[in-house]
């Protein structure tokens, strides 16, 4: 996408991989009291966290901390604003560049934690952060923005890495509409939702899980849009076959009018002929309308077009 070749993106990409701020050591070692607070709060009754006798005989050989409590160990605790500002990392940072470029709003989208070992009372964690990736500029339902993936490493008192966390957030420029809606606390207008019934639920569940599923009869006939019966063999039995996601543009339109919220215009809508042979309507993204051609190779992707709403989209196939 031509738009992405901006100085901003170049600047941000130069900062990826470099540490953000100084490594920070936890205020307290892993301890039973905090574990107990946590287990009370989420009502986690797993005895390996709180029952020394049970834990002793367990695979752990003693009390361990709940793995998902990871972040809690290095949280700063209650701070005044002055303290918070004093702690903020100095120098250029990706998030600051985005703030300065007007992408002032933030929403967390994904969190992935991987644990190398369970933590035990006495472990003292040190945490370090870096920016792992910054996406091209994306149009989202909230507004135009960049997805930023922050990588956090947790090391113990011996310098051993015990866990990592990847945290993905969207820094975006709120649209006037979404900003207004946010101010008023009103719900944002969402894209029309499909009507889900027994015949199509698999498709929409698949999309939510990032899979493009096509109805396939056991006689081999692929059907889209799906329906209850195979027109070839009249079978009512079928399975959901996962499409490879590759296809070509069979036709397309560029919507300009009427402007219907929350769509952004011009809105590029394509009829894709999938490699498997069926056609499907979707959006084509990260491309200018004048670059689209019938026959162009495209591939499926799954975008979170609004919070908690995954939608099938297509993009130009690379290479």
């Amino acid at each position: 996408m031509k738009k992405s070749e901006t100085p901003l993106l170049d600047q941000m990409r130069q900062l990826t991989g470099a540490p953000v701020g100084e490594p920070n050591t936890a205020r307290d070692p892993v301890n039973q009291a905090m574990i107990r607070h946590w287990c009370d709060a989420v009502d986690d009754r797993n005895p390996v966290y709180t029952d020394p006798e049970f834990a002793e005989k367990s695979v752990h050989g003693g009390i361990v901390a709940p793995p998902t409590m990871l972040q809690a160990w290095t949280m700063p605790g209650l701070m005044s604003r002055e303290e918070r500002e004093a702690r903020a990392p100095r120098g250029p940072s990706v998030l600051r560049l985005l703030d300065e470029a007007g992408f002032t709003s933030v929403v967390a989208t994904n969190c992935t934690q991987a644990y190398k070992r369970y933590l035990r009372p006495g472990d003292l964690l040190t945490v370090s952060h870096s920016i792992e990736a910054v996406s091209d500029e994306k149009k989202t339902a909230l507004g135009v923005g960049h997805f930023v993936t922050q990588l956090t490493c947790y090391r113990d008192q011996n310098g051993e890495e015990v866990a990592t966390m990847r945290f993905r957030l969207l820094k975006f420029r709120p649209t006037e509409r979404s900003a207004g809606a946010e101010r008023r606390g009103a719900p944002k207008r969402s894209r029309p939702v499909p009507s889900i019934n027994h015949d199509n639920r698999f498709f929409w569940d698949g999309v939510q899980a990032g899979r493009l599923l096509i109805q396939r009869c056991f006689c081999g006939k692929l059907r889209h849009p799906p329906g209850p019966m195979c027109p070839v063999c009249r079978s009512l039995e079928w399975e959901a076959a996962e499409a490879c996601g590759r296809g070509t543009v069979y036709s397309y339109v560029v919507a300009h009018h009427p402007p219907i919220p929350p769509f952004e215009y011009p809105n590029l809508i394509v009829l894709v002929e999938l490699e498997e042979g069926v056609r499907i309507v979707s959006n084509l993204v990260d491309i200018e309308p004048e670059e689209v051609e019938i026959g162009m190779a495209v591939r499926a992707r799954f975008d979170e077009v609004e919070p908690d709403r995954i939608l099938l989209q297509f993009e130009r196939a690379k290479g």
């Binding site: 894209r191 029309p192 939702v193 499909p194 009507s195 889900i196 019934n197 027994h198 015949d199 199509n200 849009p225 919507a255 219907i260 769509f263 809105n267 809508i269 499907i280 309507v281 979707s282 959006n283 939608l311």
Partner: peptide
């Protein structure tokens, strides 16, 4: 959850 309503679901979410 009717067939006629579901029909538009193949198009409306994309605009």
């Amino acid at each position: 959850p009717t067939a006629e309503s579901a029909h538009f679901g193949w198009y409306a979410p994309y605009g």
